[in-house]
Amino acid sequence: MIVGNRKSFEEILEMIKPYRRVLLLGCNECVTVCAVGGEREVGVLASELRLWSAKEGQELEIREHTIERQCDHEYIDQIRSFVDEYEVILSMACGAGVQYVAEQYRTRIVLPAINTTFLGVTLEQGVWSERCQGCGTCILDKTGGICPIARCAKSLLNGPCGGASNGKCEVDKETDCGWQLIVDRLKELGQLDQYEEIIPIKDWSTSRDGGPRKRVREDSRL
């Protein structure tokens, strides 16, 4: 899922300062699962904003609304009937959602309430961890199912580097060395011979280096 962190209340206040009518828009997908921008978090931020405005004597109208996905225009369309009543949309979706809402309502100002951080997994309730950087060329078949691009701080294709110590990364003692994890896993799988194969230089043009990416599946188009 896409994981994010909510921006600080101070930062959010600074963004919405010029406005009096705010549509606080949540998303029911990834940001709900990682507890940052779903219906509950919309409720908490709306409550915070109402308490703040009451305390400061500022006029501020907040409408809470959460749609199924902010990355699909069918769902974004659902707010069309009332979106014009608000000066600004404060989106609690990931960066993709914020942008797509802005694309659909070109006359509305759309602001981000969260910082989108990574593609990851839920380690336990309340703890998420990065697993994928969406580089466009997956090599998990060669690395025991552990991604050196996302899990190694240097994204080394043939690691580990000299900074690894006792299985931890030099960047942070709490962070596992991605290549240590790969070697351990290959050992467990009896595939350590794969480690001896040199992984060739990566073509980063399939990643962000090739510019914004797009996928078209012709048979699925209408």
Binding site: S8, F9, E10, L51, W52, E56
Partner: peptide
Amino acid sequence: SLLDEVGL
């Protein structure tokens, strides 16, 4: 912490 943020 939220109440501190909003000034209550």
